[in-house]
Design a protein around this nucleic acid. Sequence first.
RNA 1: GGGCACAUAACUCAGCGGUAGAGUGCUGUCUUCACACGGCAGAAGUCACAGGUUCAAAUCCUGUUGUGCCCACCA
Length: 912
Amino acid sequence: YDPKEVEGRWYPIWESRHYFTPEANANPRARVFSMVIPPPNVTGYLHMGHALNHTLQDTLARWRRMSGDRVLWLPGTDHAGIATQMVVEKQLLHEGVNRRDLGREKFVERVWDWKAHYGGTIQRQMRVLGDSVDWTRERFTMDGSLSNAVKEVFVRLYDEGLIYRGEYMINWSPGLQTAISDLEVEMRQVKGKLYHIAYPVGHAVTNRVEGLAETYEGQTEFSGWLKTPDGDFVVVATTRPETMLADTAIAFNPEDERYRALAGKSATLPLIGRETPFIQDEVVEKDFGTGFLKVTPAHDPNDFAMGRRHNLEFIQVIGKDARVTGDAPEKYRGLDRYEARKQVIADLEALGLLLKTEDYTHNVGHCQRSGVAIEPLISTQWFMRMKPLAEPAIAAVREGRTKFVPESAAKIYFNWLENIQDWCVSRQLWWGHRIPAWYTPDGQPVVARDEQEARRRLAERGEDPNVALRAEEDVLDTWFSSQLWPFSTLGWPDQTEELKTYYPTDVLVTGFDIIFFWVARMMMMGLKFMGEVPFRTVYINALILDPEGQKMSKTKGNVINPLDVFDKYGTDAARFALTAASTAGLTLSLQESKLESARNFANKIWNATRFVLLNCDDVLDTQGGAPLDWETEIAPPELADQWILSRLNRVGLGVRDALGEFRFHEAASTLYHFFWDDFCDWYIEMSKPFVTAKEPTPQSTAVKRRIIYVLEQSLRLLHPVMPFITEELWQRLPHKGETICLAEFTPGDPARIDERAEREMALVIEVITRLRNIRSTFNIAPSIKLKAQIAPADASTRDLIARMEDHVKRLARIEELQIVDKLPARKGSARAVVGASEIAVPLEGLIDFENERSRLEKELNKLINERGGLEKRLSNQDFISRAAPDVVETTRARAEELDDQVAKLRAVIEAL
RNA sequence: GGGCACAUAACUCAGCGGUAGAGUGCUGUCUUCACACGGCAGAAGUCACAGGUUCAAAUCCUGUUGUGCCCACCA
């Protein structure tokens, strides 16, 4: 099977015929099933995570669509503020242009140009993957209607006091020159130094102090308070000595008795000369360093909070460019923060105040996008108040209105929401949604949907509505618009039909890394503005690891491109492998063996169908007539037919249930074993004599039609996971309808499950397997035809064997099968016990007695072992009285059966 | 520092109260008229360790060890 010839042919047809719009379902009473795609970045390209995420969504969408639902799977992309701006800036750089040279307006135009030319990569790749999304409803987070929703939400939240503007400490990315949210900060382990610095108390230091380090080293009772002939000093430990230029206090723990006497006093800041008071604060750990903490309220989040608590002065010495500002002494001004660090250290060293430098590994916040170390700065930004929004979002999941699968993912969600901090939503970028605010000449903000409304609001405030207004320059965090995705894409704030029909969505499929960024925020916004959760179920798909079990990352160079995988194994196979690997786990390692197995499976499907087409052409209605109906009985079904029909229905039910509960691996493996083992290895094999018969008989025609029926139904079951190969093959079979995409998903019917047929077939299979086993054990060439005798356990088994005699003979390569009441006690025959029936294969001259004895003894041991376990239970009075009666009953029955088998095997071994 | 997972066959993983399954790999065998990306047969696991609950534990509880992930302001 060559997937390349087939895949790629079908998508254009599906798309042009609009099979994937909900309108393709004409049934007015159809149930609605909706999903929105997690919008990939417009700059994005398909990676393995998408391949998995989309395969699972597509499987659900196709399955629901084939099950009669009106399905909307809405696609789209995210404008990805920072990522996209960076891409275009890089492009400009090649032209030797800086974005500032271009100006904001021109730059934004360039971004739109870029999108028009290069923004369609992932959409093309989604078609390669087979995503059955409704392209007629594709959205982009910067679309007019979505921007409108953004403005509306911003204004409403502001009016309610849930958005505010203020001066706080934020994460500043010197790389991107913008504020970023806590979530965009990534902690990295950095090997740094911990510097111990002495601050004089009650005196200033202008000349070098000698011997301080030795004094510090020699402290017997470790203390940061050094009393020397040169005066008193306190020692602080810091990883960022350059920030001392902005110190405005020194803190110690109120419980710390060592330093209590310093309360109310102050130290003199070296290099600066500023008096910095001692303060007492709980956050200081007595046991860390010396127990003194330098407080830099303008450059550290902790110190910022402390500064507020203690009314400290906020002095900023590092600017947005990460260089020392004019508020520092002249000699440091303009130095980069790391240069400043060196200089400060050198200067302290010169004064004899640097007492100790030790290696120190600690975590430093870095900008996720630019990789540059964050500079905590005080800045005026827009914030969203999260606590009041988080509470309903927590409640909704607790009450089960939205369910996480796997359930454990909800814990991640709760954990974050319960400790949520306000969200800095403004960004100093050009690409994104402009914050809908204007400033009066005196700098007062007016938040409004447009300038006109801003003026109206001024008038309402009693202010002059005709002043010159300056529009806010900042844009919103990309996630601000993403969080509205489930309803902004459906027309909100207008109360559209679409919104009524498709909101809330049924399922959201996404990765756990995005629970905070996106899922939690969508929950908050959905509840706030729609009054209802945005999705009933959140399915968290696994994180894909490389074959070594490592996280894929560009720096490790172990990233696997899904398109390469599709190319090598076929898209259907890759999809099948991903589905089959989607267990309840949080990770999934992509094994080559799984891909090979899936590729072989596709090949098996191809060849099995090829066999059927080749041999059953006389009953194919190639004119595309009605599909063959199982009920069309030309000849009565025999056991194999009853059995495969039962299995088909059982599998239909099983796959339905598995998909309904997001047990994707179970659906995949059920299909795999049904198709390969049941259909190919047993049903087709048993049907071969009929199928390949030279002269057609009513029975051969019936069997052919049944094979085609089962095959056609199987392709439907497989289609949600393997859309291309199934469409290709389905089109070559008799079928109703123009595409398998809209064919009915084989509904398993419990009434068609035939327990008796399955039980009987299991026995026949075991008889055949035992006979083959004997052949294999004694290494009997296939060319040698054997005779066999079987003594059935009872009349019904005798009847069963008689009915299936031809199959048994052919599949076990037996030329003569005698059904007898009792096996003759003949030496030189290999024996087996199946249930209560016994089998003998006369092997005069061929049998190796030792071989046979060990084979049988091994078998016997297995049985005895099992019997022993049962005996232990049955002889236990507590088991009899306390275990469930049906368990006791089946245990007894099994014990009896084993007793019988053991007795028979013993007899056989003795006869040897 | 806090939280969450996970430890089952050589590898990757299912199973999650009635003494173990899959895919790959491995062994043997067969080029039998769909498929060697195949058929047939087979070998392989004291279910990490120690306690406990239960008539019964890979499965539930506790602890130990090991591994992974997430969150967090120890300067």
